[in-house]
Each structure stands twice: as structure tokens, then as C-alpha cells.
């Protein structure tokens, strides 16, 4: 019973973290039309910021500084936003497909830095000993309390994203997305608007990274898998319905539940089949994306509203 509760808690916590990522991507793509395929880079910035700030001091990497999480998380969000400033300033003038390629390249550079700059990130060894909030409550209540915290953060991000979408700023973003020339004629500055949306979305991703690092209690370059982050979050947003914040959250939870369920099914198979099941899952993710694009391009909760 307790094991089942812990398993469910883990899945829901990770679903919440993906929901934060998907909300950030929805601000960028759904609302503003920015094709960011480098969520991984901003997630890494937030994750390493939170990890280094909260971990105990170690010779393996910069710091750690032993801060409490509630002080470190805002800094992690700021780290994602700060990294987005130069990236956005350099690349947001690009067309959608060029931006996609440039952001993938940017995320790869972040991965190289995380792997090679030992003094900063601990290199391949990563940062260990990251404290998880509420650990003192023991099992199973510690993880449950952490899940509630993640849920609270996601609810806050959702409220913020909704408020943004319905504000004059959000309307201006949609105007830039749908007809840049008309927005310009109405006196809007598309470049500045895009940059603000890009930075805000990246802050969401940084916060998601912080929650991820504190949940795992360890963070290293192996956690930076483009398929499981940058690309999976696209599948989630498209499945849920890009443009809709509710869709982003629903897509994240639904796709992650499927991902985790297939993981569980694979674990029931004999060992040699289990590794193949992971590849089969990769195939199904690709196929699911095609089916959604062909059959219901607007996603579960459609409309780029």
C-alpha cells in the first residue's frame, strides 16, 4: 500500500514538473509562436542553480551554499530568465524553423558546458546531496508534502499564465503571432514583446528544473536528455492543445501518465524484452505525435485562443 502511494506520488510529482515546463512552452509557442526546441537549456540553468545553492559545500563543484529551497527557487527561475535574455536577443528575429534549429544548438552547448566545466557543475559526477524539502517528515508523508508543494507551484504558474494570456500584454503577443505587420501598424514592438514572452517562459522552465533537481536530490549531465525534456514537452503541449493553458497541464499529466504506465508495463516483462520495450515506447511516442497531428491537430483542448 505504502509502495503504491509512493509510486503514485512520484508519477504525479514528475507530471507536475512537466506541467510547469509545458506552461512555459505554451507562453512561448502557444501564445507567441516562438518555436523553442531548447527547453532543456533553461531547465538545466534552473536545476543547476537550485542544486548549487541548496547542496552542502563540496570540492567537486561550485559551492554548495546550503540555502533553503524557498530562497533558491526564485533564483533558479531568474537563472532561466537570465539565460533566455541573450539567447532571445540573438535569435528571436529568426523565422520559426531557424529558431527551432538555433535553440536545439543552444541546448546542446548547455549540455557540453554541464559535462565539461567541472569547477561549476561537477562535470559528469554532477551535484549530489541536494536536500529535498520536507524530507524530515519521513516516508510516505515527506514525498506527499513535496508533491503538494509542486502542485501549489504549478497552480501559481497556471494562474500567472492565465493572467498573462488575458492581459493586454497577452493580446499583444497573440497579435504579433498572428499578424506581425498589423501589430506593428498598431504601434506594438514585436521584438520586445517576443523577448518578454520568451524570458517569462524560460523562467517557468528554470523553476521546473529547480523542482526536478530537488526531487531527484541529485543532478548531473545524464539527467539532460533532449528526448525526455525538450521534445517530450512538445508532444505534451501538442497533445493537450497549444494555446490553452489547461491543455498544457492536461497534456503534461496525460502523456506523462502514459509514459510512466509503459515504463511499469515494461518492468513486468523479462529483462531482455524490457530493454526492447523502451525502444518500442520511443516508436509509439513518435506515432502518437503523428496521429494527433493528423487526426486532431488542435489537441485535446484545442484552439490557439
Amino acid at each position: 500500500m505504502e509502495a503504491a502511494l509512493l509510486y503514485l506520488t512520484t508519477i504525479l510529482t514528475l507530471a507536475g514538473i512537466y506541467a510547469a515546463l509545458a506552461l512555459g512552452l505554451n507562453l512561448q509557442w502557444g501564445l507567441t509562436g516562438l518555436m523553442n526546441f531548447g527547453a532543456l537549456g533553461f531547465l538545466a540553468a534552473g536545476a543547476y542553480a537550485a542544486a548549487l545553492l541548496t547542496a552542502p559545500e563540496s570540492a567537486q563543484h561550485l559551492g554548495g551554499f546550503g540555502w533553503p529551497w524557498w530562497l533558491a527557487w526564485p533564483v533558479a527561475a531568474a537563472a532561466g530568465a537570465l539565460l533566455a535574455l541573450p539567447v532571445g536577443a540573438a535569435s528571436l528575429r529568426l523565422r520559426a524553423d531557424y529558431l527551432a534549429i538555433a535553440t536545439i544548438g543552444f541546448a546542446e552547448i548547455v549540455r557540453l558546458v554541464a559535462r565539461n566545466e567541472d569547477w561549476l557543475t561537477g562535470g559528469p559526477l554532477g551535484v549530489s546531496g541536494i536536500p529535498r524539502p520536507f524530507e524530515g517528515l519521513g516516508q510516505p508523508w515527506g514525498p506527499v508534502a513535496f508533491l503538494l508543494l509542486v502542485a501549489l507551484v504549478v497552480a501559481g504558474l497556471y494562474a500567472l499564465a492565465q493572467a498573462t494570456a488575458h492581459s493586454p500584454f497577452g493580446r499583444a503577443l497573440r497579435a504579433v503571432r498572428d499578424d506581425e505587420e498589423a501589430a506593428k501598424a498598431a504601434g506594438k514592438d514585436p521584438g520586445a514583446l517576443r523577448l518578454r514572452a520568451f524570458v517569462l517562459g524560460a523562467a517557468f522552465m528554470g523553476l521546473a528544473g529547480a523542482m526536478l533537481a530537488q526531487f531527484f536530490k541529485f543532478f548531473g549531465p545524464d539527467a539532460l536528455d533532449p528526448v525526455a525534456t525538450s521534445f517530450l514537452v512538445w508532444v505534451m503541449l501538442i497533445a493537450g492543445g497549444s494555446g490553452s493553458n489547461r491543455g498544457a497541464v492536461l497534456g503534461a499529466v496525460a502523456v506523462w501518465a502514459l509514459w510512466a504506465a509503459s515504463d511499469w508495463l515494461a518492468a513486468q516483462l523479462p529483462a531482455e524484452l524490457a530493454t526492447r520495450a523502451a525502444y518500442f515506447r520511443l516508436f509509439l511516442i513518435g506515432l502518437a505525435l503523428q496521429v494527433i497531428l493528423l487526426a486532431r491537430p488542435q489537441g485535446m483542448l484545442g484552439g490557439r485562443g
Partner: peptide, 28 residues
């Protein structure tokens, strides 16, 4: 082919899904 008239962004995402499927077949 069914997406020929869609935005380039949609085709890009679709081709990404195709990439995953081909890679999965190679792994299998």
C-alpha cells in the same frame, strides 16, 4: 503528404516524430 498545406512548423514537428520512429526501429 496529408500536412502539405499546413504550416512549416507543423511539418517540422511531424518530421521530428518520424525521426523518433525510425530511430526506434534501428534500436529494435
Amino acid at each position: 503528404a496529408p500536412l502539405r498545406r499546413a504550416q512549416p512548423a507543423v511539418l517540422l514537428i511531424s518530421s521530428f516524430g518520424v525521426a523518433l520512429m525510425i530511430r526506434a526501429l534501428i534500436y529494435l
